[in-house]
Computed example of a mutant assay.
Amino acid sequence: MDRIPELPEDILHRILYFLFQEDVVRTSALSKSWRYIWRTRPNLDFSDNTKYYKGVVNNTLQGYCDLRLCLDEFRLRISSGDYSDSELVSLLDKWIPLLTTSTMGVKEFQLSILSKNSVRGIVHLPVVLKAEPLKLLWLYDCSLGQNIPENIPFVRLQVLRLQSVSIEQEIFDKIISSYPLLTDVWLQKCEGLKTVILKKKLHRYLKH
C-alpha cells in the first residue's frame, strides 16, 4: 500500500524541494493527493533549463501572489541570447518586484544570466539590484554596461560569480564594497578589471 499520499504537506514539500520545476510538475500525475501539491511548495527552481517560456515563469509567480503564498527560495537561469536587451530588462523588472513583495517574501534568490551569442548581452544592474533577497549572483558572457548604480539597496549577497564578463573597474569596486556578507568571489576572464581590492576582514573567507 502506498503510504506517501498520507504524509503531511510539509513532508511532501520537502520531497519536492530537491526536484527541478519540470520534474515537480510531473508529480501531479501520481495521484489525487499530488495533483496540486506542486503549486504550493516553498521553493521554485527554474535553473535546470535556460529556455523556459516566459509565460511559465509569469503564471507561476502570479499564482503564488494570488494565493498569497510565501516563497523561501527562487532560482532562475535565463539566457540573454533568447531575448533582446529591452525584453530581458522588462522581464526582470516584472519578476523581481513580485519576489520582494511582503506577501511572497522570498528569502533566497539565485540569478544566473547567460549569453550564448557572439555579441554579449547587456545586463542592466539597476534592475537586478532591486532584488533585496539576492544571495547568489552568477553572470556569464555578458556586459554590465557603463552606468554605475547610484545605490545598491540589498546587502545579503554572499556569492558573486563573474565569468567572461565585461565590467568597469569602478562598478566592480562599488559592488565589492557594498556587501558585508560576501564570502565567495569567483572571477574568470573578466574584461575591464585592473585590480581587485578586498577588505582584509573578508580575506580568510573568500575563495578565488
Results as ranks from 00 to 15, higher is better:
111 L>T: 06
105 G>T: 06
58 N>T: 08
132 E>T: 11
78 I>P: 04
43 N>T: 03
58 N>M: 03
157 L>A: 06
49 N>M: 08
82 D>I: 00
97 P>Y: 01
118 S>I: 09
146 Q>T: 11
133 P>W: 04
163 Q>W: 14
129 L>T: 14
109 F>E: 04
83 Y>T: 00
74 F>H: 00
115 S>K: 01
45 D>S: 02
58 N>F: 09
151 N>M: 07
41 R>W: 03
141 D>W: 02
162 L>G: 14
159 V>H: 15
114 L>W: 05
98 L>P: 04
139 L>N: 10
58 N>H: 13
87 E>M: 10
79 S>G: 12
170 E>N: 03
54 K>H: 05
172 F>D: 07
138 W>L: 06
144 L>G: 10
136 L>A: 07
119 V>C: 12
57 V>N: 06
156 R>W: 10
107 K>Q: 04
45 D>A: 03
117 N>W: 03
134 L>F: 00
65 C>Q: 14
97 P>E: 09
53 Y>F: 07
63 G>S: 05
148 I>D: 04
54 K>F: 10
112 S>N: 01
57 V>K: 04
106 V>G: 00
88 L>S: 09
66 D>P: 05
72 D>A: 15
47 S>R: 03
155 V>M: 10
162 L>A: 14
51 K>H: 12
65 C>R: 14
86 S>A: 08
54 K>L: 12
158 Q>R: 14
137 L>A: 07
168 E>Q: 11
162 L>V: 12
42 P>K: 08
164 S>T: 12
121 G>M: 01
57 V>R: 06
70 C>L: 05
115 S>F: 01
154 F>C: 10
145 G>N: 08
100 T>P: 07
65 C>W: 06
64 Y>M: 13
96 I>M: 06
47 S>F: 01
151 N>A: 08
70 C>H: 15
83 Y>H: 11
53 Y>S: 12
